[in-house]
Amino acid sequence: MSWQILVNGLVNAALIAPPAIALSLIFGVMRFPNFAIGGYITVGAFFAYAVNVDLGAPIWLAAIAAMIGTAVVVWLSDALVFRPMQGRGPVTLLVLSIALTLILEHIVRLFYGADVRGFDLPLQRPYRFGDIRITQEQIEIIVLAIAIAAITHLILQYTRTGKAVRATADNPMLAQVRGIDTGWIILLTWLYCGMLFGLTGVLAGLDLVIEPLVGWYLTIPIFAAAILGGIGSPYGAMLGALLVGLAEELTVLILPSTYKIGVGFVIIAILLLVRPQGLLGRPEIKK
């Protein structure tokens, strides 16, 4: 029983780690909490659904299409909404991002309704290790999450562009003065994160279900993970995802699973109060 909870928690963590990393990166260069991520994830899930079920393509192809499609949506939302309103303060951008997530979610509803769906996949028996059950998809989710964390780490730490992303997040004015085209760096960050959000939509569809609210359900744990890790710190986000993933599963022991989303909020509230800079984050002066 308890080992099964650990495994479920790991899968949960693997699901929220990539978008939490992406959220951290976006926060780093944009400096506001972007609630549009829920919309992006939903869009990603339905892109994949359209390619996989409506067009009958294999799931891996659907996943690639979803990543590209979501990156395009993310790019458009930046060009049409966030970029024209840069410098308007975090609250305005926060309001905009919530409006955007509602719009994206309801565009999906317009086409697909509110029904719960699933990918067209052959049913597979879960693997059993003693008492522990784990499905093929869940193993894939964990492997992908580890791969994405590693790739992101390598990019940020060892490539010129990755270092420029960190430099831009650290001090955008200085980055420009040193000749870094921060507009381009921000665009690249958006696109990379867009692909991660798209992929998250696909993985959520594999592990949970596909519905317009799938992104919203994940938004809170993702924020909890990113804030827990110290928002703006991608490495902290990985750790945060692990803790939130496990915490959510552990509360199932005490509370009905329908309260999962509330657990994320409680973690956020407590953590922000006790350690506003997050576990690994640098202290930030409260404005």
């Binding site: 909490p33 809170i220 509330g262 909020f265 922000l272």
Partner: peptide, 18 residues
């Protein structure tokens, strides 16, 4: 008291959802 305005916003959103 201890939260930046945008983080405070997240907490209020959480209250609504709970």
């Amino acid at each position: 008291l201890r939260l930046r305005e945008d983080f405070f916003a997240i907490v209020t959103l959480g209250f609504g959802e709970i």
